[in-house]
Write a protein that binds this DNA or RNA. Structure first.
Lengths: 226, 226
DNA sequence: GTCTCCTGCCTCAATTTTGCCCAAAAATGT
DNA sequence: ACATTTTTGGGCAAAATTGAGGCAGGAGAC
């Protein structure tokens, strides 16, 4: 899914510059000659990032920013011809993410945009929810496991089992599994772990993963790479 | 709760500068003369933000960043004496958040730090009024949802449900929904979520949206694009 | 008062998961 | 080599979960 970027600037050649450089990076870009039309477009669909010139006829970039901030925390980058510190400070105070002084280096702008998106994605994916081993990735937020990006279609028990194996170094005993995943007190046959392993193995083989579940004889299981 | 900031720089006067300005802003600041000691401190307690000089004896700022990124997505600001573009790019590529070229304006740094924290808080408090996913845009101010700009005519419960799904990454459990949208204490049948999903799906299909609500078996739901 | 719409709940059918049994295979001990 | 213990894999059916249609009470509009 392409990231959508809206940009407002009254100077046509700046709009062209933004359009061409950001589009070349694979973003979907829409430019506007003034803040009002950008705001109107946001009401229909909020973009993933906004670039605002500060000095514009009609609403200033600051005013547009304030309006946007009532509805959304979409990242905003200001463009300014003035270098006065107070503008900079004011811009950041009302919630912008960055600013560039004209003339700016397009490559720097692109880099900054990518840095902002990377930051947001990192915040979202909150790291420890996603673990990987070999070509297998388990995403607990999605409650799903993937092999090379392809969904393995695991059931709740299977996901829990695999995730436990992946987050615990070395071999894991059957009793530990029964305690952690099935609940200690439950009257389940000790062999249920084997059932889950059986089904997991089948799905791993079907997906041609380079990961396999090895048996630790008389003890439990551990993950291995072929 | 004070935000904690760690900073590493081999130049004493830079450390003093950072210490005094950031402390004055109400942050808890600890400075280190090299990257190793900063990493060691992170093992004890991860700060809310890290400032790294790139050129340091021992580990470079980049190396410290790479180590940190294995454990955390803590925001990182680089300080550099060099203006070469490749350094900038490299720094951003390995997941930093920003950079400053020495000599830098302390007030600018402080502003940037506050902007980063503000951004994180906004992300967290997910009180977004306008959010989009695929061709769907939900505007909580209007209590309306649009598919490509066309009103979906959703009811209050449906709007709340869809908005919650859109503002929460990954799958959402039925219990979470019941708690957040129907209110925990209420004695509602667990299946009411299914009812809302049923009705939402019907409207999404009718609007020919590229968004669909996927079932996470035994857990809840999540948004997907076709 | 009447009408419409929203929403929770019920039921039945279809689907999926999962614990269990059993026989064969593998590993271990004597 | 032989007996014993453990693991494997197939198959099965009970249990759990979900989807769709329909219904009715209640809030709000007219």
């Amino acid at each position: 899914m392409k990231k959508v970027i809206y940009a407002a600037d009254d100077e046509a050649h700046i709009r062209e510059l933004l359009q061409s450089f950001l589009q070349k990076e694979g973003f979907e870009v829409r430019t506007f000659a003034d803040g009002e039309s950008l705001l109107a477009a946001c009401d229909k669909q909020m973009p993933n990032l906004v670039v605002l010139d500060i000095m514009m006829p009609g609403m200033s970039g600051f005013e547009v920013c304030e309006q946007l901030r009532r509805k959304s925390s979409v990242p905003i980058i200001f463009l300014t011809a003035r270098v006065a510190e107070e503008d900079y400070v004011k811009g950041l105070e009302i919630g912008s993410d960055d600013y560039f002084t004209k003339p700016f280096s397009p490559i720097s702008l692109v880099m900054r945009v990518r840095a902002i998106f990377r930051r947001i994605e990192m915040e979202h994916s909150s790291k420890e929810e996603i673990v990987s081993f070999g070509d297998i990735t388990v995403n607990m937020a999605d409650k799903a496991a993937y092999c090379d990006g392809k969904d393995l279609a695991l059931t709740p028990t299977e996901i829990a089992f695999l995730h436990y194996l992946m987050t615990h170094e070395g071999a894991v005993s059957r009793n530990e599994m029964l305690k952690q995943i099935w609940g200690f007190e439950q009257e389940v046959e000790t062999r249920v772990t084997d059932d889950t392993v059986k089904r997991l193995r089948k799905k791993l083989v079907a997906a041609e993963s380079n990961v396999q579940i090895a048996t630790v004889w008389g003890f439990g299981f551990k993950l291995e790479m072929k």
